[in-house]
């Protein structure tokens, strides 16, 4: 059934039991919203030299956006920045594939479960919300931006 291709068990599991949720110490903080549906995320990035020491987040939104943030935390924390950026680019490419890609499990691990979401244009933004926030926060952390008070 089509719906199951979007709501994979992996996604529902991350949604119900999110990994790394909660705001912790960070070098930069961003707040991103999906204006069409009201999904929101506050996300902090903590760097340790060239390594992504932590990605912490708080948010509200649909199962897709929340599960995606959980998967991001799993995948990126502990990685070197260059590798984390490659993973982010691979996820972005998968989400923009309109259902034409399956994703490289070696690189994306649980995130390949989102391949089905890429068939639903209205939901791609949900899946990408935390990833775009992460990219923004990382750029700010590298630029030495101070941590803002959480909203």
């Amino acid at each position: 059934m089509k719906l199951d291709s979007m709501y994979q068990d992996i996604i529902l599991d991350h949604y119900k039991h999110p990994h790394g949720r909660g705001l912790r110490d960070g070098d930069a903080e961003v707040h991103h919203v999906n204006p069409t549906c009201g999904d929101e995320i506050t996300l902090r990035v903590k760097l340790d030299g060239n390594v992504l020491a932590d990605v912490s987040y708080e948010g509200q939104g649909c199962s897709i956006s929340q599960a995606s943030a959980s998967v991001l935390n799993d995948l990126l924390v502990g990685k070197e920045l260059g590798e984390a950026q490659q993973i982010q680019e691979a996820f972005l490419e998968l989400m923009q594939s309109k259902g034409q890609m399956e994703g490289d499990e070696e690189v994306l691990e649980d995130a390949i479960a989102f391949a089905g979401v890429s068939k639903y244009p209205a939901r791609v933004k949900c899946a990408l919300l935390s990833w775009m926030a992460w990219k923004d926060a990382t750029a700010q952390a590298l630029a030495g931006a101070p941590v803002k008070e959480s909203a």
Partner: peptide, 28 residues
């Protein structure tokens, strides 16, 4: 259950509803 998810499962059954803040975010 987030309205996005409600709307998606309803859509699978052919039911078209609106989900989100309906351009009235202060009400939410």
């Amino acid at each position: 259950i987030h309205p996005h998810d409600v709307g998606q499962v309803l859509d699978e059954q052919g039911i078209a509803v609106r989900v989100g803040h309906h351009c009235a975010r202060p009400v939410c």
